Computed example of a mutant assay.
Amino acid sequence: MDIENIINEIDYYDDIDHYDDILWPDRVRLPKVYIRDAQDPFQTPIESFKIRFRFCQDSVIYITNLIRVHLQKVDNRGLPIAPEIAVLLTLRFYATASFQIVCGDLTKVSQPTASNIITKVSRLLAQLHRRYIKFPEGAEANINRELFKELGRHGRWPGLPGIEGAIDCTHVKIVSTPACEHHEVYRNRKCDFSINVQVTVGPRTEILDIVARWAGSMHDSRIFQMSALYMKYTQGMLTGRLVGDSGYPALPFVLTPIRPEPEDPPSIRYNRAQIKTRNIVERTFGIWKRRFPCLSRGLGNKLVTVSNIIVACAVLHNISLQLNDDMSFNPTQPDDEPEAMENVAANTRDGFLLRQFLIENYFQ
């Protein structure tokens, strides 16, 4: 049968592969390559699963369902990655801070694909921050204030009243030189490149507010004064108080310790209550960075992706508290000393008056 007759009879062949065999009888057919899971990771024992991904299986399904619609493809072209596999790959990266090629090998995908997945999942999780990172309202806010008061209690002396958050900053290391024109602004006082992350936490280690966009050289108090949280307090949208270290100015809504160390008993008792209340933010940093080691070992992604990863880990931290999916960690000691105060444009007089009022009425 010649080629012309075969072409004329093509419509009579239902099996196109059979037609190919007739047209090119000596052709060697290569098998198609498909991505196949060697095993189902969800069948791993729960303890081993949590060590590898920082969440139990049910929590991973819950997290996947939050962003599933944005991970699914409308067709099967290009052998798409299942949403569960994409989330597991990203969680493994957060849990190990390993090279993306290693995380990709674990799920049988290439390094570029792994990079795209981590970038996309991190962005989607970070976009959930308004839902999972926020100050409580109503009765829940009053409960938080009472819990903070109990945190600062010492013997018969009460804790600080009206506290609704503890604020501090922590550095997330950038392992490579940032790809921007003025990259030296990201070098902190320890000579490492980093992002200075402002975090406000509640009495149960929940994250209430996070700012993850400022360079490592930026001072803690300056980040606070340029944040939306500062504006909410100055405009009366939030009516409680924060506790912070000596790197923050004394304001009507920020209680700071007395420096240098006081000698009179009422001031000593105030300092003790303030430090005990503020310690919750250091404990949160320890739990947060132990659960997601990428935050302590450093990130080599693009700057925008680094910020998304930091916020995504904060969202995941709060989700773990809501789902009661905890891990037994011994919080690490704080790695950041309080920064020296700089000259800031803030009304500290009212803050000093408030602090003196509390000392005279609560700690005499």
Rank of each mutant, 00 (worst) to 15 (best):
G162D: 13
T177A: 10
L229V: 06
E337F: 13
R156D: 13
A95P: 02
P161K: 08
K134V: 08
A126M: 06
S267G: 11
V28L: 10
T170Q: 11
H219K: 13
S296V: 12
N65R: 13
G155W: 03
G298N: 11
L295P: 10
T284Y: 06
I359T: 02
R204N: 13
L151W: 02
Y132E: 06
L71W: 02
P266G: 07
L323M: 15
V211T: 14
C294A: 10
V304D: 15
N8C: 07
C191V: 02
N65H: 07
A139P: 03
A179R: 10
D335A: 10
L242R: 01
E84K: 01
P178A: 06
V175N: 15
R156Y: 04
E263W: 02
R54C: 04
Y94K: 03
P41C: 00
I359W: 04
I268C: 15
T64V: 08
Q111H: 05
H129N: 14
L316W: 01
Y233S: 08
P80F: 00
F224N: 03
S176K: 14
I51Y: 04
N361D: 11
L323D: 10
R36E: 02
R259H: 10
R259L: 09
F352K: 04
R269S: 08
Y13W: 15
K302M: 07
H171A: 05
Q57H: 09
L299P: 02
P203S: 14
V201A: 14
I258D: 04
K50W: 00
I6G: 01
N142A: 05
L147W: 04
G247P: 08
P252N: 15
L251N: 14
P45K: 01
I118A: 01
A273F: 03
R283K: 14
D15R: 01
T284W: 02
V60K: 00
P136Q: 11
Q235C: 07
G162R: 14
I46Y: 00
L71T: 03
A212F: 09
Y248E: 13
V74A: 09
N271A: 07
S110P: 10
P262D: 12
A126Y: 03
L124W: 09
R355V: 06
S217D: 07
V69N: 12
V254L: 15
G298A: 14
K276P: 04
P266L: 13
I16V: 12
Q198S: 04
L30G: 00
G202K: 04
N144E: 13
N343C: 07
N144A: 10
L106V: 12
I207S: 13
Y132S: 07
I81K: 00
S115D: 08
T44H: 00
F93V: 01
L255I: 15
G244A: 11
T177F: 09
H219V: 07
Q111I: 05
F253P: 01
T256S: 03
L354F: 05
I275F: 06
D17A: 08
L88A: 00
F363R: 07
T200Q: 04
N76V: 01
H154Q: 12
V201I: 10
R36W: 00
M226Y: 09
L125F: 08
A215V: 04
K276I: 07
P266M: 07
H183W: 04
A346C: 08
